Simulated scan of single mutants.
Amino acid sequence: MCGRYALTLPQEAMVQMFDAAPANDLPQGPRWNVCPTTQIPVVRAGGEGRALVSMRWGFLPHWYTSPTDGPLLINARAETVAEKPAFRTACRERRCLIPADGFYEWTKAADGTRLPWYFTQADGAPMVFAGIWQDWGPENLATCAIVSCAAGPTMSEIHHREPVTLAPSDWGLWLGEEGKGAARLMQAAPEGRVRRHRVSRAVNSNRAEGPELIEPLIDEDDI
Rank of each mutant, 00 (worst) to 15 (best):
L7S: 08
L9R: 08
M14T: 06
V15A: 04
Q16D: 14
M17R: 14
N24H: 15
D25P: 09
V34S: 04
Q39F: 08
Q39K: 12
P41E: 00
V43L: 04
A45S: 11
G49D: 01
L52R: 01
M55T: 03
W57T: 01
G58T: 06
L60Y: 12
P61D: 04
Y64G: 11
T65H: 14
G70K: 10
G70E: 11
P71S: 11
L73I: 05
I74L: 00
R77L: 11
A78Y: 04
E79H: 03
V81F: 02
K84P: 05
C91P: 09
R92H: 10
E93K: 12
C96H: 08
I98R: 00
P99H: 00
P99V: 06
A100I: 00
A100E: 00
A110P: 00
T113I: 06
R114C: 13
R114S: 15
W117C: 02
Y118L: 05
F119I: 13
T120H: 05
T120W: 01
T120L: 03
P126Y: 11
P126C: 11
G131P: 01
I132E: 02
D135W: 11
D135I: 07
N140C: 12
L141T: 14
T143N: 07
A145V: 00
A145L: 01
S148V: 07
A150D: 13
A151Y: 07
I158G: 13
H159C: 01
R161E: 14
V164I: 11
V164P: 10
T165V: 07
L166G: 04
P168F: 03
W171G: 01
W171N: 01
L173K: 11
E178V: 02
A182V: 00
Q187A: 12
E191F: 06
R196S: 13
R196P: 08
R198D: 08
A202I: 13
V203K: 03
N204I: 07
A208V: 02
P211D: 06
L213R: 00
I214E: 03
E215A: 12
L217H: 03
D219N: 15
D219I: 14
I223N: 15
